[in-house]
Simulated scan of single mutants.
Amino acid sequence: MAISLSKGQKIDLTKTNPGLTKILVGLGWDTNKYDGGKDFDLDASVFCLNAQGKANSESDFIFYNNPKNSNGSVAHAGDNRTGAGDGDDEKIAVDLAAVPAETDKIAFCITIYEGHERSQNFGQVSNAFVRIVDEQSGTELIRYDLGEDFSIETAVIVGELYRHSGEWKFSAVGSGFQDGLAGLARNYGLATN
């Protein structure tokens, strides 16, 4: 049975699951009834970060247009433009054993594509979650449901995998940004246009 986390909680991933090397990180969401006339397009993105919490290069930013990090150990499965249906809307595969040594943390984020331009925010999104699944067995190990109401944010850091004493842990973050993907990129040390 999956362990359900609350905002701010941290949990061992590899220590409590010996032999775990390949995981799937599923992110999902629904949009509330919305009459703005524009479609909602939420996107999962991933930042591979060094010990200072910064991305070393653009290749450490994984999303639908850059689906893999430099060695392929973090891979985005593709863009879901509608979020329709139950279950994971977007997935990221992570080979924990192959993640480069200089990657100390992997941050998983959800952003609203053109959120400001379309007058959309996470106050119009419900049932957002992140879950970690053992790729081999298909067993859900960890789940974090974002119950918080982000009324003006257009980007959310949902959770982070991080190294601690040779093991991988997961932290339920739930931190919002008002300036979307550009704000996240700046936060992680990448220049934005």
Rank of each mutant, 00 (worst) to 15 (best):
F61T: 01
F61W: 11
F61V: 06
F61A: 14
F61E: 03
I62L: 02
I62Q: 01
I62P: 04
F63L: 00
Y64S: 06
N65Y: 07
N65V: 07
N66H: 15
N66M: 11
P67A: 03
P67W: 04
P67Q: 04
P67N: 13
K68I: 12
K68T: 14
N69C: 06
N69A: 10
N69Y: 00
N69I: 12
N69E: 13
S70I: 10
S70L: 13
S70N: 13
N71M: 08
N71C: 12
N71W: 05
G72N: 05
G72T: 02
G72I: 06
S73G: 04
V74L: 05
V74D: 02
V74T: 07
A75W: 08
A75C: 09
A75T: 14
A75G: 07
H76P: 03
H76F: 11
A77P: 05
A77W: 08
A77R: 15
A77D: 14
A77L: 15
A77N: 14
G78Y: 01
G78R: 04
D79A: 06
D79C: 08
D79G: 07
D79Y: 03
N80R: 11
N80H: 13
N80A: 13
R81L: 14
T82V: 10
T82M: 03
G83D: 02
G83Y: 10
G83I: 00
G83H: 10
G83V: 00
G83A: 12
A84G: 11
G85S: 05
G85A: 13
D86E: 15
D86H: 08
D86M: 12
D86Y: 09
D86A: 15
D86K: 13
G87H: 12
G87W: 01
G87M: 06
G87N: 12
G87I: 01
D88P: 05
D88V: 09
D88T: 08
D89V: 06
D89L: 03
D89C: 12
E90F: 08
E90V: 09
E90W: 10
K91F: 03
K91P: 04
K91N: 15
K91T: 14
I92N: 01
I92D: 03
I92Q: 00
I92Y: 00
I92C: 11
A93C: 05
A93S: 15
A93P: 02
A93I: 09
V94I: 15
V94P: 00
V94H: 01
V94R: 03
V94T: 13
V94D: 09
D95H: 08
D95P: 02
D95S: 11
L96C: 06
L96V: 03
L96S: 01
L96F: 09
